[in-house]
Design a binder for these strands. Structure first.
Length: 218
DNA sequence: ATCCCGAGGG
DNA sequence: CCCTCTGGAT
């Protein structure tokens, strides 16, 4: 008999994550699908904390696509200057608002293809909006999910789309949204890109990566 | 593969 | 100083 390749059951990992982060949720602040869409576009290569700092004032003055369209590209850029990639984001957001107004009556479409056709909106952003704003199951793979899922051997790929496929295959559909947020919280709080805190991680006994970083003490 | 691109942390 | 942050378009 060959020794079984022992792989940690996905169920085990998911249960521990649920136990570690029972209240995980989206940390971007928004009041409606439009605000979530804009906040998510802004979140590229930026921390949610910085995004919330910017959107607090922005959404108070400009709560709708129409109101954004009263701004020039340079004016909007000035409002979001605290974030990285602010020129690209300003341009994309205004074009997106134009399309929302002209094609969708100022509403955010609940449709992946229509969302991804908006400038500045790719698969990850579309997944965030579908899942959080509309309750449509989706599993957004961002930098945290990519890193953590691979460290935990929930996925094995350098490609985010492939990682998404592998996760969707292993995680029950009803748990996609919660799992997404739990993995992100884990990636922020413990399984950080640099110097992960394996010593205080409940998943350490089940983590191949953690054993490399910080071997179990005897 | 490269560009965009400021704030915050180590 | 260098690395990272809920990426997307070319």
């Amino acid at each position: 008999m060959k020794p079984k390749p022992k792989r940690v059951p996905t169920r085990k990992i998911l249960d521990i994550l649920a136990q570690m982060y029972p209240d995980a949720h989206c940390e971007l602040e928004y009041r409606n699908p439009f605000e979530l869409l804009i906040a998510t576009i802004l979140s590229a290569q930026s921390t949610d904390r910085q995004v919330n700092k910017v959107t607090a004032g922005l959404f108070a003055k400009f709560p709708t696509p129409d109101s954004f369209l009263t701004l020039t590209e340079a004016e909007l850029a000035e409002h979001i200057r605290g974030l990285g990639l602010f020129r690209n984001k300003s341009k994309n957001i205004l074009k997106t608002c134009e399309i929302l107004v002209e094609k969708y009556g100022g509403e955010v479409p609940q449709d992946r293809e229509k969302l991804e056709a908006l400038p500045g909106v790719g698969r990850k952003t579309a997944n965030v909006v579908l899942s959080n704003a509309f309750g449509i199951p989706a599993l957004a793979v961002d930098t945290h999910v990519q890193r953590v899922a691979n460290r935990l051997a929930l996925a094995d790929s350098e490609n985010v789309l492939e990682t998404e496929r592998q996760l969707m295959k292993r995680v029950p559909r009803a748990e996609w949204s919660d799992t997404h947020h739990r993995i992100i919280w884990h990636g922020r709080r413990i399984c950080s890109a640099r110097s992960p805190k394996c010593h205080q991680c409940d998943l350490h006994p089940y983590c191949w990566y953690g054993k490399q970083v910080e071997p179990v003490k005897k």
